[in-house]
Design a protein around this nucleic acid. Sequence first.
DNA 1: TACTTACTTGAGGTCTCCCTCAAGTTCTGT
DNA 2: ACAGAACTTGAGGGAGACCTCAAGTAAGTA
Lengths: 207, 207
Amino acid sequence: MTARPLRADAARNREKLRAAATEVFGERGLDAPLEEVARRAGVSIGTLYNHFPTRDALYEAIFPERLAALDRIADAAIADPDPWHGFVAFVEGLFALQAQDRGLNDALAQRFPVPAEVDEACHRGFRHIDRILQRAKDNGDLREDFELPDLATLIWAMSRVITESMDVAPQAWRRCLAFFLDGLRTEAAHPIDVPALTEGQLTSRFG
Amino acid sequence: MTARPLRADAARNREKLRAAATEVFGERGLDAPLEEVARRAGVSIGTLYNHFPTRDALYEAIFPERLAALDRIADAAIADPDPWHGFVAFVEGLFALQAQDRGLNDALAQRFPVPAEVDEACHRGFRHIDRILQRAKDNGDLREDFELPDLATLIWAMSRVITESMDVAPQAWRRCLAFFLDGLRTEAAHPIDVPALTEGQLTSRFG
DNA sequence: TACTTACTTGAGGTCTCCCTCAAGTTCTGT
DNA sequence: ACAGAACTTGAGGGAGACCTCAAGTAAGTA
């Protein structure tokens, strides 16, 4: 079970690959060619496949670190004495992360099927987030009919705004978000007759 | 200059290609393989290139019809006695079109560079739209700081929501839009400190 | 009916990315 | 210093899409 430790050069290469993957996916998104990752790591494509037999294995090596950043943002949001402010800070922090990292943007918007492990981490995070929403609702700030799946659709929405505008106006997504947030306040709410996505609908989009 | 008329079989093939392209791009988006278009038209790939030497030529053959539908929706919106209702009907009609046609969705969200002619048609449409917005603002319904470029970002946003949810919940985008619209009412408005995209920023995203 | 010209065909070259594996290289323990 | 295990290499085969062009077919005209 306990695999014997990697040889020194192998460990070095593995780390170079991880770093290169973080860079490349961050810049070009999750569909970046693996040969670019290998090239940037200064290693042959064979070595890449040696360490990470599949694309998913690379994703798994990268995402925990990113998702941890997200957790920190969520924690801060929950700790915020003002629930609405906490909620706003959370979504702004989330999207700022996405704006910095095309790969994370792709992953959160689920533009590509993502390995189970990463997916599960997102779900754990999401449950965490439920508390942020609930707190803001209980305080009368966030409209009652905004549910967790609606946050997922907001992520889809913003993910495109981010990718399309980032090169030309890196802050433009904040404006779009501001309009949206103004619609999420209790006093702005008008009844909506379309139900939220179900958990099943959210997860069934891939095989 | 006045090209002599096409031979009968050629005219038939050209039309079959147009129809197939409409179908294929509608289902699979603007990046659908041209060989699929040829296959569906029951014609060889050579013939396709014969009639439409570039992808853009195909787009140009297809979009005028679609954009005309959009114009009709805009006209109806302007004719609406209630400016806010007209505005809402316009965006709902717009996104309903996009939900029916992945290709149009791609084109309006400018997911791919689109030929100048199509682009220009969009711009003409957009100026038209300015009146819809202005009317709703003048009537005190639409917040003053919502500008034309903000509609472009809304299109980006919704285009992703549409593609991601259409297979699983074809109406889900309406819910997301409803939240957004609630943020566009005058009485929901809170000041926003990020400026709208400029015309230049909107158009400079491609070479 | 036969000829000319217009049109169609699809195999095949190119490109990009995927992934594999036999041969070569480098580390590590003795 | 050596043997052997661990690791790396990159050429190469495969898949999918792009686009071209020489050879073949069919429409229009006399």
